[in-house]
Computed example of a mutant assay.
Amino acid sequence: MDSAAQRLAGVEAGIAAAAARAGRKASDVQLVAVSKTHDSSTIRPLIAAGQRHFGENRVQEAAGKWPELRGGTSDIVLHLIGQLQSNKAEEAVALFDAIHSVDRPSLVTALARACEKAGGQPLLFVQVNIGDEEQKGGCAVADLPALLAQAKDAGLKIAGLMAIPPADVAPTPYFALLDELAERHGLPLRSMGMSGDYESAVMLGATHVRVGTALFGAR
């Protein structure tokens, strides 16, 4: 089986090649290793190989493993990529450096309160339900302007948009739409693309790709 370092090098090479095809620099794209459900023994080899940005789905799971994993590695950057309950906002602001799943007015209110109490805020993305899927989190495309306005009024600085395209269809139209929405609203960051499609996402403007299987191997 490929080592963590080999898998990491392979994904980084894929990002670099896709960026070059799009006339972008590889350094414009941040690789977030999706470490949700993986234990410390699986994550440490990636840290040793040089990976520093990691994505988790749940506040409780991240709180249970990352204080020890961060240990003497002060430059680890933690991203919350899963849905966030409003009552976990304060804990999330304390633990995570970036939150990709701001998606509703009640969460904006809770995050604004938590950030004010903390005296700072993580990097924030609004998650857009880009495929209008009932089972998925994210704000509707039509509701995006109002949510961004609410966040601004509450003192939150939204840096970008995040989306998860529908499964089993070509993701590229959805990546293009998210890029266009971010451009329309003057947001510099786009969190889109996973193991199976991150190269397409990079070619269509992704600044953050969230990759799990290609880095950690199939379960």
Rank of each mutant, 00 (worst) to 15 (best):
N129I: 06
C115P: 08
L187H: 07
I81S: 08
A149V: 09
G137S: 07
A206I: 04
I158T: 12
L177Y: 03
E180Q: 15
P173R: 05
E183Y: 03
V202S: 00
V128M: 13
L147Y: 03
R104P: 02
E180P: 00
D168P: 00
D132M: 13
P145N: 06
D97P: 07
M192F: 10
G71Q: 14
I164H: 05
F96T: 13
A110Q: 13
V77M: 11
A163R: 01
Y198W: 03
V108P: 10
A154V: 01
K152S: 13
R70W: 08
A140C: 03
Q121H: 06
V141N: 04
Q83W: 09
G72R: 11
R70H: 10
A94Q: 13
A163W: 10
T73G: 10
P166K: 10
T109L: 13
I130H: 08
E91M: 14
A146C: 07
I164V: 15
L148G: 02
V169N: 00
F125S: 01
L144T: 13
I158K: 06
I99N: 00
M203D: 07
L156P: 06
L156N: 09
E90M: 12
S200F: 04
S86F: 13
P145Q: 11
G196L: 02
L80F: 11
A154F: 02
V141K: 14
S200L: 14
M203G: 13
G138P: 03
L161N: 07
P188N: 09
Q127H: 10
V126T: 03
A89D: 02
L78S: 05
V126R: 04
L178R: 02
L204A: 08
Q83D: 14
K157S: 12
S106R: 14
Q121Y: 03
A94E: 12
L111I: 09
P145M: 07
L107I: 11
G72A: 15
K117Y: 08
H100D: 10
A142E: 15
T73Y: 14
R70S: 15
A170I: 09
A92N: 11
A163M: 04
A149F: 06
L69D: 12
S200R: 14
I164R: 04
I164E: 03
A140L: 09
L181N: 02
G137R: 07
G186N: 06
G193A: 01
G71N: 07
D197C: 09
A118F: 07
V141L: 10
H79K: 10
R70G: 01
P165S: 05
A201S: 00
L181D: 00
H185C: 08
M192R: 09
S195V: 07
L95Q: 05
A149P: 06
L84Y: 11
A146D: 13
G205A: 03
D153H: 09
S101V: 07
L69G: 10
L84N: 05
R190P: 00
Q150C: 08
G196P: 01
Y198V: 02
E91C: 02
A142G: 03
K117A: 15
Q85C: 10
L123P: 00
V141Q: 12
T207I: 06
V169F: 00
S191L: 09
D168K: 14
Q150I: 01
A146Q: 13
D103M: 11
V128D: 06
L123C: 13
Q85V: 12
V93I: 05
S191Q: 00
Q83H: 15
A206S: 06
Q121P: 00
K88P: 02
Q85P: 09
H79N: 02
L107E: 04
P188Q: 09
F125H: 13
V169C: 11
